[in-house]
Design a protein around this nucleic acid. Structure first.
Length: 418
RNA sequence: GGGGGCGUGGUCUAGUGGUUAGGACGCCGGCCUUUCAAGCCGGAGGACACGGGUUCGAUCCCCGUCGCCCCUACCA
């Protein structure tokens, strides 16, 4: 199979485009064929180098490497003009007020054989003689696509369903050109929560936004693969290899899907928890642009759903955070300073300085004082994290190190006037 | 207006001429427990868009209606 991904560079690549690219890439890998990248940049107003770079950037991040290209459709203009001339010379197209129109038969119909939708029939009566070249001679979309797909030997055109209605036009051009049409597969559109086709205007999630929000590329691929495709009745997680092996156009659904970030978060959390702490730290450092202690990473890992959650969860392990006054008021009640002082002694003498020994030491304080565990743990938590909510207290104290933990507790004791 | 596509809980989906219509996210509750998550367990939530057929029987087959979306540009 020779497939292609042919985005028009209108800005950041959104998840609809990413899914189209993924499906094409999967088919190429599965069949041992080629994945061709072609930039549909004939509309020069929208096609800025920055926009084109964003597409490369998104594909690279998702690790959907292309085998051929990137080709610029605009640069192929001589070829398009050549074919426009030929169509005119052979009577398939004609000049109309300077523009060139394709002659569409009045009778009959053109049938699209779509792998996903079956036969779709378009009566010619409903298709006007459409323009294939502007009066300034520049080729238009349908012409350029048909010529490029043919020239590039594309065997399967897999794209969004928004192109289904354009397909008979491309088929008509191909036929006039005397070319064999490719196999078509029109994917269900991705809609925004408002039910409309996803686009920049709808604030559609772009690939770069997802990256900045702390999603992992493998989780994003897994999630978007499921938007319009299902393997069986219950499997949700697929490695890239499994996707390559199991994906098939026949199982792609026909109805539009809505992007659900909640589910992506859930899935991303699974991927995050599966990472080795060292690997997770590398990714965090790459995203946050600063060194992160691995001990802090390990502590936060079990609660994170996105990489950016790390900061919310474990910033206090990297550097002291502002004290939450309400947390302080809530926890530092009568007797709390005293319990905190006892906890300090236990922490000071725990040996070795590990979660297990800290747990033993702090539990014995709880037992000796005859109070509830939270009466001891929450003051410690507020002292070291500044809030009432944090990862496991023993892990957190261990990750902080004895010296820093004690320093923070002393500061809290000072504040309490104890 | 014309043409085309689509229609299974809020969302993503599985599924078949006879099933208690399956799974997942989310939601609710419980367990765990030092907080919040995670994890585990349980629960609520669907007349399979609607109306006609065909059939002993339709979510599934046929027709119609409605709804939504796409195309209908000298945009892509």
């Amino acid at each position: 199979m020779r497939v292609r991904f042919a985005p028009s560079p209108t800005g950041a690549l959104h998840i609809g485009g990413a899914r189209t690219a993924l499906y094409n890439w999967l088919l190429a890998r599965q069949s041992g064929g080629a994945f061709v990248l072609r930039i549909e940049d004939t509309d020069r107003e929208r096609s800025t180098p920055e926009n084109v770079e964003q597409i490369y950037d998104a594909l690279r991040w998702l690790e959907l490497e292309w085998d051929e290209g990137p080709f610029s459709q605009a640069q192929r203009r001589p070829r398009h003009e050549e074919e426009i001339q030929r169509l005119q010379a052979e009577g398939h197209a004609y000049l109309d007020e300077g523009a060139v129109r394709l002659r569409v038969p009045d009778e009959g119909a053109t049938t699209v054989q779509d792998v996903i939708r079956g036969e779709v029939v378009f009566e010619h009566a409903a298709i006007d003689d459409f323009v294939i070249a502007r009066s300034d001679g520049s080729p238009l979309y349908n012409l350029a696509v048909a010529v490029d797909d043919r020239d590039m030997g594309i065997t399967h055109v897999v794209r969004g369903a928004d192109h289904l209605s354009n397909t008979p036009r491309q088929l008509l051009i191909l036929r006039a050109l005397g070319a064999e049409p490719p196999v078509y597969a029109h994917l269900p559109l991705l809609h925004g929560t408002d039910g409309k086709k996803l686009s920049k205007r709808h604030g559609a999630a772009s690939v770069q936004e997802l990256r900045e929000a702390g999603y992992l590329p493998e989780a994003v691929c897994n999630y978007i693969a499921l938007l319009g495709w299902g393997y069986d009745e219950s499997t949700e997680f697929f490695t890239t290899e499994e996707l390559v092996e199991r994906f098939s156009l026949e199982r792609v659904s026909k109805s539009p899907a809505v992007f659900d970030e909640q589910k992506l978060r859930w899935m991303n959390g699974h991927y995050l928890r599966r990472l080795e702490p060292g690997e997770l730290r590398d990714r965090l450092e790459a995203l946050l642009g600063r060194p992160i202690p691995e001990a802090a990473v390990a502590v936060a890992q079990e609660k994170m759903q996105t990489l950016t959650d790390f900061w919310r969860l474990a910033a206090f392990l990297v550097e002291p955070q502002p004290l939450d006054e309400r947390a302080w008021e809530k926890v530092m009640t009568d007797g709390a300073p005293d319990r905190l002082r006892r906890a300090r002694e236990a922490i000071a003498s725990a040996e070795p300085f590990e979660p297990e020994t800290l747990e033993t030491a702090l539990r014995s304080v709880v037992d000796e004082l005859g109070v509830k565990p939270r009466d001891v743990y929450q003051p410690v938590r507020v002292a070291i994290s500044g809030t009432t909510v944090s990862p496991g207290i023993f892990e957190s104290v261990a990750a902080l190190g004895r010296e820093e933990a004690l320093a923070r507790i002393d500061r809290a004791l000072d504040r309490a006037g104890a």
